[in-house]
Every structure is written in structure tokens, then in C-alpha cells.
């Protein structure tokens, strides 16, 4: 049955990682107290080698997940191991440093590794939490279906607004045309909506911000309230109703786009940081041999 990658095969790789940590602690404690504890000793070198191998294996995940014909193992198992073994590095590599921290390439490699691991932790968090939030937000429909409904509502709105006065019409059409779904990566994370609308009598030139379509709905409601009634009021009432429906759809879509991005952006840190880590790691290893 369905099983999260954290509990894959009864969390087998958690135990493997734990074993690795225990071994590392044992190696660390075997260190005689005469020489300073750091990566330069034979035991430190052993820990470093294990760490390097683990990092290499973890990086290979990017290749393995694209090996679609590989059939002996499941990608889910690899991810499970990736998460647990990656976490174990936190202790393993810290023991390897022996607590020697400074402004040098060795510490740079260590810090980069910590960043990679913590970006990964964030990834685990969003992968476990967001799918459910996204599914609940969409309520059984795909984004495609929402976009289709939005297109239908837009068509209706354009038809309805044709009968309204020119100022209302221009306002609504501008609001439709300048609706922004999605934004740049930072704006998405901050949840900013860059939608605009031309609101008459709002002071100043140019379109006004219309986040969540609130500005245009407020404008339409005002117009409705100050309308003398009759045919005009009926059209405005219709517009408010249809626009409310439009807002509801847009809210779901915008939230979906935002959530999807939040679930994914961490990879844009995790992967480049990994390559930076490899740069630092090579420098670290070479320089260590040079000094040796």
C-alpha cells in the first residue's frame, strides 16, 4: 500500500544511517587524546573518506532518478536512503572536523554541506506537507479544469459588461486583461499578487494594484451602491456576482501556483549548492594532501 518515503521498507535506511552514525562516534572516540582531534589524523581521514563517499553517492541520486530502465530498486527507496544518509552526514562530518572551524576552504566545504543538508530538510518538510495542502486547495479538480472555468467566466463577464456603461466596462476589461497569475520567484514566495486594474476616479494616472481582485470588486460594489436602480443596477449586480466567482477561481489557481512553487523552489538551492559543495570539497581534499 501507499507508504511515504520516510517510512519506506519500515524506515530501513534510518537504521542504516543510525548505524553509520554509531560507527563514526566509535571511530571518533577511539582517537587518542595525544594528537588533536581533526581530519588530519588517520581516524579523521577515515571519517572524511566515508563522508566523501557518502556525498558522492548522494549526488548520484540525480543520475539514478533519471535511469528509467533501472529495475532492481525503486526510486522511492533511493530517496528514503538519500534523506537518512544525508542527515547522518551532519554528525559524521562534524566529527570529521574535530571542532576546528576557521575562515578557510575546509570550513567553507563544511558550511556548504550544512546548507545543502538543511535545504534538503526543508525539502522533506514540503514534500510531506504540501501535497495534501495542494490537493485540499484544488478539491479534486486539476489546475487545467480551473483555468477552463476561468476562461468561461471571463467570456461571460465580457458579455455582461458589454451592456454596462463605458467607465465600468473599461474598468472590468482592464481588470480581466491585467490579471496576473503567478509572478517572479521571490514575489511568489512572498505571496504578492501583481494584478492591476484601471479604476476611474482613483487619483493618479495609470492602473492601480488590484491584489486578489479586491480593488475592482470594491469599485463595482460602490457603483452598485450608488446606482439609481433599474436596469443598470441589475447589470452591476450581475457583474459583482460573476466577478466574485472569478475571484474565487483565481484565488484557488493563485494559491495552487504559489504552493507548487513553494514545494519546488528549494531544489533550486539544493542542487546548485551541491555543486558548490563539490567545488569546495575538491579544494579541501587537494589542499589537505598538499599540506600533508
Amino acid at each position: 500500500m501507499y507508504q511515504s518515503f520516510l517510512s519506506y521498507a519500515r524506515a530501513r535506511y534510518f537504521w542504516v544511517a543510525l548505524f553509520l552514525v554509531v560507527i563514526s562516534v566509535v571511530i571518533y572516540s577511539m582517537q587518542s587524546s595525544v594528537t588533536p582531534r581533526n581530519g588530519g589524523t588517520w581516524l579523521g581521514f577515515t571519517l572524511g573518506t566515508i563522508g566523501l563517499l557518502v556525498i558522492g553517492w548522494l549526488t548520484y541520486f540525480g543520475v539514478r532518478k533519471r535511469r528509467y530502465r533501472a529495475s532492481k530498486t525503486q526510486v522511492e527507496g533511493w530517496l528514503s536512503a538519500h534523506v537518512y544518509l544525508g542527515s547522518s552526514l551532519l554528525i559524521l562530518a562534524t566529527l570529521h572536523t574535530g571542532g576546528e572551524i576557521g575562515w578557510n576552504i575546509h570550513t567553507a566545504a563544511y558550511v556548504l554541506m550544512i546548507l545543502v543538508i538543511f535545504s534538503g530538510f526543508y525539502g522533506v518538510y514540503v514534500y510531506r506537507r504540501y501535497p495534501m495542502v495542494i490537493a485540499q486547495n484544488r478539491g479534486g479538480q486539476s489546475r487545467e479544469m480551473y483555468l477552463q472555468q476561468l476562461a468561461a467566466v471571463d467570456t461571460d463577464l465580457r458579455r455582461t459588461v458589454g451592456a454596462a456603461g463605458p467607465r465600468v466596462r473599461d474598468a472590468v476589461l482592464s481588470a480581466i486583461d491585467r490579471t496576473a497569475i503567478g509572478a517572479g520567484s521571490i514575489d511568489l514566495l512572498r505571496g504578492r499578487d501583481l494584478s492591476l486594474a484601471e479604476i476611474p476616479d482613483a487619483g493618479g494616472a495609470g492602473p492601480k494594484p488590484n491584489p486578489g481582485q479586491t480593488r475592482i470588486i470594491a469599485y463595482l460594489s460602490e457603483q452598485l451602491a450608488s446606482s439609481p436602480g433599474g436596469k443598470d443596477a441589475e447589470i452591476l449586480q450581475n457583474l459583482v456576482n460573476q466577478y466574485a466567482r472569478r475571484k474565487a477561481l483565481l484565488d484557488v489557481i493563485a494559491r495552487d501556483v504559489r504552493l507548487q512553487w513553494k514545494m519546488r523552489f528549494w531544489l533550486f538551492l539544493h542542487v546548485p549548492l551541491t555543486f558548490a559543495l563539490w567545488g569546495a570539497l575538491l579544494g579541501h581534499a587537494l589542499s589537505v594532501f598538499f599540506y600533508w
Binding site: Y2, S4, V75, E76, L79, Y127
Partner: peptide, 9 residues
């Protein structure tokens, strides 16, 4: 086989 999170069965 290739689902990383075990969502596809």
C-alpha cells in the same frame, strides 16, 4: 518504479 515519493501504485 520511478516515483520518488511512493505516490504511484
Amino acid at each position: 518504479r520511478s516515483c520518488p515519493t511512493g505516490a504511484a501504485l
